[in-house]
Design a protein around this nucleic acid. Sequence first.
DNA 1: GTCTATATAACGATAGAC
DNA 2: GTCTATCGTTATATAGAC
Lengths: 204, 204
Amino acid sequence: MGNQKDKNTEKRILESARHIFHTKGFAGTRMQIIADEASINKAMLHYYFRSKDKLFEAVFNEALEGFFPKILKLIDNDLPLFDKIDKFIHSYINILLENPHIPGFIITEINQNPKRLRNYFSKNHIEPPKSFANQVLKAIADKIIIPIDPKQLMLNTVSLCLFPIIARPVIETVFKIPENRYISFMEKRKEEVSIFIINSIKVK
Amino acid sequence: MGNQKDKNTEKRILESARHIFHTKGFAGTRMQIIADEASINKAMLHYYFRSKDKLFEAVFNEALEGFFPKILKLIDNDLPLFDKIDKFIHSYINILLENPHIPGFIITEINQNPKRLRNYFSKNHIEPPKSFANQVLKAIADKIIIPIDPKQLMLNTVSLCLFPIIARPVIETVFKIPENRYISFMEKRKEEVSIFIINSIKVK
DNA sequence: GTCTATATAACGATAGAC
DNA sequence: GTCTATCGTTATATAGAC
């Protein structure tokens, strides 16, 4: 049926567009390449999405909506602080290994147009999680961890997980890690980062 | 004199090309924009650098040569481990604040063509610093620090310094840090990162 | 909805006058 | 060495047949 075919074509276009935009960025993407990868005609892209800008917007919004809420959810639970951090790191790196190109894509495009993210955050009422900050401050008051700015702790955790994903080819070259061993390097890293962070803040 | 004017023009072109390539990347850069910013004609770009590729190569190689050697030098000294790490973090963040677009530029372009960096490393015989790894292993043996893979320690340190520079607009939005307070946020961060790392590895 | 063919604009690059 | 004018290509986008 027509309806069925529509969906399949639109889906195929979005899949290809995702792949190309994520890896090449907006400026590096050619509509022809997306069409080729979807095994359809270039004109179909415009039939379904009107313009390159509109197609990009679909892919970009999808990336934002599939990423930030998922991550903020990871620290929205009642676990004790150390368990929460440990679980966050493991889940976060898992998500990153499944979507290795999303963070670099978002950062690159936001660098080109910072307004985009601010609009998204204000439109969807996304807030930095106060519950986590309060939990950290309470742990400090209870002498469970040493004094630390919750923002810096959060940023440290994200940095340690995210940077090796974004800069993978650079790190492979500098540390001479073969391409096929990088996944296991990151698997091992989950535990190392978790220990590293908890060690740093724990009162002994 | 002709010679004097040559140098000035070539220099002006390179300055503009640097700025545009660093912020927009290769695919996002237009020769016309570089010419406009240098207040010269587009034809001059080709007179001095033949093609967009050649001009890019000049800017890119300059970025590599001005960055990796400078950083590797920061850990090539006889300081005790904790002093070395502390000094590295302060100097490294200083360099990054002076050249905030270089790391993102290098990472983006290397992601498009990983061979480039491998060629640069092998051609210039750049090696991961063994002296640092040995110093870490000795500190572990001497029970000064807890057991940790030197590569992971190095990667952790770089991640904590570099990621906030690369992802600046994202972090500003997520943590609601005003643009004009980001520099002081990073200034403060120097000390926090230093404490964070040394806390994590120190035997108490 | 899907294709081919084509319009239109932008970009990199060159020719030629000064 | 510097400019204007222009060529050749490639990119996005549309028209029109099926």
